[in-house]
């Protein structure tokens, strides 16, 4: 079989091409199969009735609201943070830079567990009791989502700011802008597409967030039931129709998000 690696000339080209394209085809076929299997599992009428059940409508609404709030907060923090890490030198910068990769790589359920533990410490418990109730509440969903997506937002925005020539800001300065004005009037407009793309990607990620959310706020139907939790609850109660309906909603949201980004930035941003 290793003889194939030594094929010279066009035969080698063709064999290699066939091998790589087959790998691709295999993977695409796999995804088509699992999606199609869901289609065979459900009927249109039951799908529609599941989709418009009070529980699913609640989950859609809760997911969209929490993800939107989480995204707005995360992006508002991530824009200046990403700018700092992109443009400034400070002691421990590379350490901070690596630390920011952790929440992206680490399992969300671990982050959720860490949050839960934090709210069991005296300080955390005091905050939970006296400032804002996070554990097992909708506010907690937002916090769990922010925890998972903020690092991702910083990563995406950092690469946006890295790609902006600092001379734009310098010219802005010579035209009378203070540093903050130059940021707002020059850098931010230049970063506009990157910021929107980062917003959409982190929003989509927040909508899909499950691990941290369920650990911090539990899975209470009609209370902390986001779309992924709805899938979990439906499967747990063997209501496959409902689970499939939610899966399709998530697929539609994901496709819409990716489509918008592609329209906006011309294939530039990928996860």
């Amino acid at each position: 079989m290793f003889q194939a690696l030594k094929l010279k000339g066009h035969a080698g080209d063709r064999a290699f091409r066939a091998a790589t394209v087959s790998a691709l085809a295999l993977l695409v076929l796999f995804f088509i199969t699992i999606v199609a299997s869901m289609l065979t599992y459900t009927h249109w009428s039951t799908f529609i009735s599941a989709l418009f059940s009070a529980e699913i409508l609640f989950a859609i609404r809760l997911s969209i609201i929490t993800a939107s709030v989480a995204t707005i907060i995360a992006v508002l923090i991530a824009v200046p943070a990403a700018y700092a890490i992109s443009q400034y030198d400070f002691p421990g910068k590379s350490l901070v830079d690596s630390l920011l990769d952790l929440p992206i790589v680490i399992s969300p359920i671990a982050l959720g567990a860490a949050l839960l533990v934090f709210f069991n410490t005296p300080v955390g418990a005091w905050i939970d009791d006296n400032v804002l109730k996070f554990t097992f509440t909708v506010v907690g969903i937002v916090l769990a989502q922010i925890t998972v997506i903020s690092a991702l937002a910083i990563r995406l925005l950092k690469s946006t700011f890295d790609g902006i020539d600092p001379r734009y800001e310098q010219v802005g300065r010579t035209l009378g802008c203070s540093k903050p004005e130059a940021f707002l009037k020059v850098t931010l407009p230049l970063a506009r597409n990157g910021v929107i793309a980062a917003g959409i990607l982190t929003w989509a990620r927040a909508v899909g967030e499950f691990g941290a959310t369920i650990t911090l706020v539990g899975a209470t139907a009609m209370k902390t039931e986001t779309l992924p939790i709805a899938i979990f609850l439906s499967l747990a109660s063997a209501d496959v129709e409902k689970a499939i309906a939610v899966v399709f909603i998530l697929v539609i949201i994901a496709v819409a998000a990716l489509f918008t980004i592609r329209k906006l930035t011309g294939r530039k941003y990928r996860l």
Partner: peptide, 20 residues
């Protein structure tokens, strides 16, 4: 003094016009 305090007109090498 900061650049904005110097009353200087600056044309960088490849012009750096604001694309937006």
């Amino acid at each position: 003094l900061a650049p904005e305090e110097r009353s200087i007109g600056y044309v960088p090498q490849d012009y750096v016009l604001f694309p937006f």
